[in-house]
Design a binder for these strands. Structure first.
Lengths: 175, 175
DNA sequence: AAATAAAGTGAGTAATTACTTGCAAAAATA
DNA sequence: TATTTTTGCAAGTAATTACTCACTTTATTT
C-alpha cells in the first residue's frame, strides 16, 4: 500500500460518503487525493474496484467495533453496547463515513448485506434469552431494525437527538 | 396535465425509484415514456423540476394513507394502523415506488423531511398517552424511527419478512 | 551497475450527459 | 375561420464522464 494509494482511498471514502457513488467522478477523487486520474485505474482497475476497496477497508474497521460486542458475556452489557454503537461511531469521523457509506451504497445499489450483522444478532439473541425475553430471536432482529432506523435519522435528520433516543431505549430495555 | 406529461411522470417515478436520481438520464426517461427528450424540459424546466413534480405527486398519495391514521379515534387502532402502513404500501406498486423514492432521495440529497410525518407522530403521541404510556412523545418518536428501519429492510433486504416483524410489534404494543 | 518491475503522469477518446433551439402540429381562443 | 398558444419533435451543443495509452520516474531485484 503506497502513500498515494491510501490518499485515493481516503478521498474516495469522503466523497462517496458525502455525495454517493455515481455522483462522484474519478476526476474529483484524483484531485482531492492530489494524484493523477490515471493512477486510480492503475491501482483499482475501475471505479467499481475502487468502491470495493473502500468498502473492504470499512468492513475491517467495523469488525473491530463488533468484536467488543460479540465477546461481551454480561447479557445486559451486550444490549447496552449495541445501543451505544451509534455514539461510538460519531466519535471518529472516518468510522462515521464508513457507516454512512454502507447505508448510502445500500440504497444506491439496492442490496442489504444482512450476514454482516449476523454475529451481533446472534450475541443479542443469546443476551435476550438470558434476560428471560419470550422471543429472543425476534427481539434481536427488532433491535437491529431499530438500529437501522436510528442510523437513518442520525445521518439524515439535522436535529436528531441521538442521546435522547439511546437513553430512552436503555430505559425500555432496562440496561 | 396532458397524456404525455403523465407518462413522463410515471416513467420518471419508476426509474428514479429503481435507479436513483443522478443515475437516471433524461434520455432514458423519455424513451420509457415514449416521448421526445425535449418535452421533459418543456414541461418541467429541468431534471430537478421533474423530480420535484414526481415528489409532489407522491406526497399527495401519501397524505391519503395518513388521513386514515390521523382521523382514527381508538388509540389502539392508531398504533395498529401505523404498524400496518407498510403492508398497505406493498399492495399498490405505485405507492411502493413513491415511498421507495422518498427514502432513496433522502440518502441521495441528504435531507430528512421530518415535518412530513408530524401529523402521524402527533396522533401516535396522543394514542400512547391514552394508553397510559409513561413517555408518549418519545414512544411515538421511537415507533417512527423503527418504521424507518422497517422501510429500510423492506426495500433493501431480499428475504425480509415484513408480516413477521409487524406481528411481533403488534404483540409488543398489545394492539 | 544493469535490468526489470512497479508507480505515477497527463493528454487524449468515445460515449453519455443535461439542456437548447428552430420549427411543425395540434388545441384553444378570438 | 383566423390567430394565438400550447404541445411536441429532432437535431443539435458544450460539458462531463470513465477509462486508455504512451511515456517518465522511482523502486526493487539480479
Amino acid at each position: 500500500m503506497t502513500d498515494k494509494q491510501l490518499k485515493i482511498l481516503q478521498a474516495a471514502l469522503e466523497l462517496f460518503a458525502q455525495n454517493g457513488f455515481s455522483s462522484t467522478s474519478t476526476g474529483k477523487i484524483a484531485k482531492k487525493a492530489g494524484v493523477s486520474e490515471g493512477l486510480i485505474f492503475r491501482h483499482f482497475k475501475n471505479k467499481e474496484g475502487l468502491l470495493e476497496a473502500v468498502l473492504m477497508l470499512g468492513e475491517e474497521k467495523i469488525k473491530t467495533l463488533f468484536a467488543d460486542i460479540v465477546f461481551e458475556t454480561e447479557p445486559k452489557q451486550v444490549v447496552k453496547k449495541v445501543l451505544e454503537l451509534g455514539l461510538k461511531i460519531i466519535s471518529n469521523e472516518e468510522d462515521a463515513n464508513f457507516w454512512k457509506l454502507q447505508y448510502k451504497i445500500k440504497w444506491e445499489i439496492e442490496k442489504y448485506n444482512e450476514h454482516k450483522m449476523e454475529p451481533v444478532e446472534h450475541a443479542l439473541s443469546q443476551a435476550f434469552s438470558n434476560l428471560g425475553y419470550e422471543s429472543p430471536k425476534l427481539e434481536a432482529k427488532l433491535l437491529l431494525i431499530t438500529f437501522d432506523g436510528i442510523a437513518t435519522r442520525f445521518f439524515l435528520q439535522e436535529n436528531f437527538d441521538l442521546n435522547k433516543t439511546v437513553d430512552f431505549l436503555n430505559l425500555k430495555y432496562k440496561v
